[in-house]
């Protein structure tokens, strides 16, 4: 292992100071992506700033019309939380479907959202449920958050504090997992929110995105049949040894219909 400095600050101010003093410093949440990348020598930060000792980043709270999940809450805690289960069962199910038990007990919602892996599950929830990403500087709405491959609205050194999910009328998440990694080959969140129907897709493109044609169709007729015949363009979708872009485009339709059926049943 090459050398790096490990820090475990106890406050956001301290974390910010370390980040400010070291150009090549990286924030460490669960480390489920960063550490394997470092082991492969594809990243060599000078300093790691572990967020696990900062108070207030690992709470789950219910404010009546919304729930707020701290950035350092791991997937297993979200899956097991009665608060989350009561408010948004689709989010519990989603968290429970991430990776394996080890990943669920180390990986965090803040890390997943900040990393914005194209095949991560949480981005579909953040976008589909119209969540708000709260950072140490501001609040970012889901529609402004996901920009491109591994690219979000976060600025260098900006720290995710929590994610706030308004409680939807109803929501369901359906994914086609890679059988080995359980990453989403395609995952679709369908939600009826105060602002209307939202359909958000992860796994298929460079980052999570909404399918407005499906949202419009479901607004008129909330049934799986309403989605029949809505073509998903494969041009900008990802292609790899697990699935071609065309197959992913097909799966977007299939997963969306499955999510709708869950909600009607």
């Amino acid at each position: 292992m090459y050398e790096f400095n490990y820090h475990r600050p106890t406050s956001l101010d301290e974390a910010r100071k370390i980040l400010g003093d070291n150009d090549e410093a990286k924030l460490l949440a669960g480390g489920m992506t960063l550490l394997p990348t470092m082991k492969m020598r594809l990243a060599s930060p000078s300093d790691l700033v572990d967020l696990s000792n900062i108070e207030g980043l690992a709470d789950i709270s219910d404010s009546g019309d919304a729930i707020e999940i701290g950035a350092m809450v791991c997937h297993a805690e979200v899956a097991a939380s009665d608060v989350v289960r009561a408010a948004i069962p689709a989010l519990s199910d989603l968290a429970d479907s991430i990776g394996d038990a080890q990943v669920r007990n180390r990986g965090t919602i803040g890390g997943s959202v900040a990393n914005s892996d194209p095949a991560a599950d949480y981005p579909a929830a953040v976008l589909g449920l119209n969540a708000v990403v709260k950072t140490d500087r501001r609040e970012i709405s889901a529609d402004d958050y996901f920009k491109a491959l591994f690219e979000t609205a976060l600025e260098p050194g900006e720290i995710v504090i929590s994610v706030r999910f308004a409680k939807p009328e109803r929501a369901a998440y359906s994914k086609f997992p890679n059988p080995a990694s359980r990453y989403a080959v395609v995952g679709v969140m369908v939600a009826e929110t105060a602002e209307g129907i939202r359909v958000a897709v992860t796994g298929a493109a460079a980052c999570a995105y909404r399918v407005t044609a499906m949202e419009d169709a479901l607004s008129k007729d909330f049934s799986a049949g309403a989605l029949e015949g809505i073509a998903v363009d494969a041009a900008d979708l990802l292609s790899d040894l697990h699935a071609s872009a065309e197959y992913r485009a097909h799966l977007v339709g299939v997963m969306a219909r499955r999510a709708v059926r869950q909600l009607i049943a």
Binding site: E151, A206, D236, L238, S239, D240, L241
Partner: peptide, 11 residues
């Protein structure tokens, strides 16, 4: 990393 090569290339 193969799942990310295409997306990264496009980006």
């Amino acid at each position: 990393g193969s799942r990310l090569v295409l997306g990264a290339t496009r980006k």
